[in-house]
C-alpha cells in the first residue's frame, strides 16, 4: 500500500529526515514512535504534501503511484488522510459545508456521484451517531471554539466520512482525556479491515493500548532505528528512548 524508500527531507535548509525506509502493507496498522524532534511530524507533513518541506532524496509510492508528485488534494482523493496534530480553525466556514465540500471533492475524483445537502446530512448523521458526536457540531465554524477533544473527534469524523484507504494519525492522542481517547480509537478501529491501513504517529505508548498496531517502528534522528511487534511499544514505555539510542 505505502512504500517509503530512502526518503530524505529538509526544512529551511536543515535535514530532518535522513533516509526513511518503511512499508505499510494493505490492512495493517503501523505505529511510529519517537521522542520530540525525531522527525515524526515532518514525515506526516511530507506524506500529505504540505509546502515548506524539500524532498532531497528517496521515493514514496502509494499503490505503486508516485505520491510525492501529487498535490495535497490529489493525495486525499486517492485515499490518503492526515489527521492533524493541531486541527486548523476556519472561522466563517461552516463545518457542514466544509465536510460536504470535502466529501464531494473526493467522490468526484473517484468518479462517484456527488451528494446533495439532504443526502449528505443523512450520511453525516449516521457517522455522528457512531462517534457519539453532538449534531450541533455540524452547525459551528470548522474547529472554531472547539475543545481539544472536539477537534480530534472532528478529525475522526472527517476520516469516517472520507473513507480513506490509508490514514496518518499525527499525535492524535495529544490533548485527549481517556473518554475521548476511547472514542477516537473506536473510530479508527471501526475502519480496520483489509482495505484500510494506518500510520499512527505517537510519542506515548498509551494510544497503542487502544489501537493495537501490527508493527512498531522507532524513529530517532530522522531514521527508523528499530522495528518490531506491539511488544516493542511496551518495552519503550518501560525503558525509554535512551535505551534504543544506546542500542542503535
Amino acid at each position: 500500500m505505502l512504500r517509503i524508500e530512502g526518503l530524505t527531507a529538509e526544512v529551511e535548509g536543515k535535514q530532518i529526515l535522513k533516509g526513511i525506509d518503511l512499508e505499510v502493507p494493505a490492512g495493517e496498522i503501523h505505529a511510529i514512535m519517537g521522542p520530540n524532534g525525531s522527525g515524526k511530524s515532518t514525515l506526516s507533513y511530507v506524506l500529505s504534501g504540505r509546502e515548506g518541506y524539500e524532498i532531497t532524496g528517496g521515493s514514496v509510492t502509494f499503490d505503486g503511484r508516485d505520491l510525492l508528485a501529487m498535490e495535497p488534494e490529489e493525495r486525499a482523493a486517492t485515499g490518503l488522510f492526515l489527521a492533524f496534530q493541531y486541527p486548523v480553525e476556519l472561522p466563517g466556514v461552516g463545518n457542514a459545508l466544509f465536510l460536504r465540500t470535502a466529501l464531494n471533492a473526493v467522490r468526484r475524483a473517484r468518479g462517484e456521484p456527488e451528494l446533495d445537502a439532504m443526502q449528505f446530512l443523512k450520511v453525516a448523521r449516521e457517522r455522528l451517531k457512531a462517534l457519539q458526536i453532538q449534531e450541533d457540531m455540524l452547525k459551528r465554524g470548522v474547529n472554531v471554539g472547539f475543545s481539544g477533544g472536539e477537534k480530534k473527534r472532528n478529525e475522526v469524523l472527517q476520516m469516517a466520512l472520507l473513507q480513506p484507504r490509508m490514514a496518518i494519525l499525527d499525535e492524535t492522542d495529544s490533548g485527549l482525556d481517556i473518554d475521548a481517547l476511547k472514542i477516537v480509537s473506536d473510530g479508527v478501529n471501526a475502519q480496520r479491515g483489509p482495505g484500510f491501513s494506518a500510520l499512527v504517529i505517537t510519542h506515548y505508548q498509551r494510544l497503542l493500548d487502544y489501537i493495537v498496531p501490527d508493527r512498531v517502528h522507532v524513529l530517532m534522528g530522522g531514521r527508523i532505528v528499530q522495528s518490531g511487534g506491539p511488544e516493542l511499544a511496551k518495552q519503550l514505555e518501560e525503558t525509554g528512548y535512551a535505551s534504543v539510542q544506546a542500542a542503535a
Binding site: 500529505s48 488534494e73 486541527p87 471533492a105 473526493v106
Partner: peptide, 16 residues
C-alpha cells in the same frame, strides 16, 4: 493546506 488535505482543490479552497 487543511482544506486541500481534505481533497478540496486549491482554487475552491481559496474561494471558501
Amino acid at each position: 493546506f487543511y482544506l486541500r488535505a481534505r481533497g478540496i482543490p486549491e482554487a475552491r479552497a481559496r474561494a471558501m
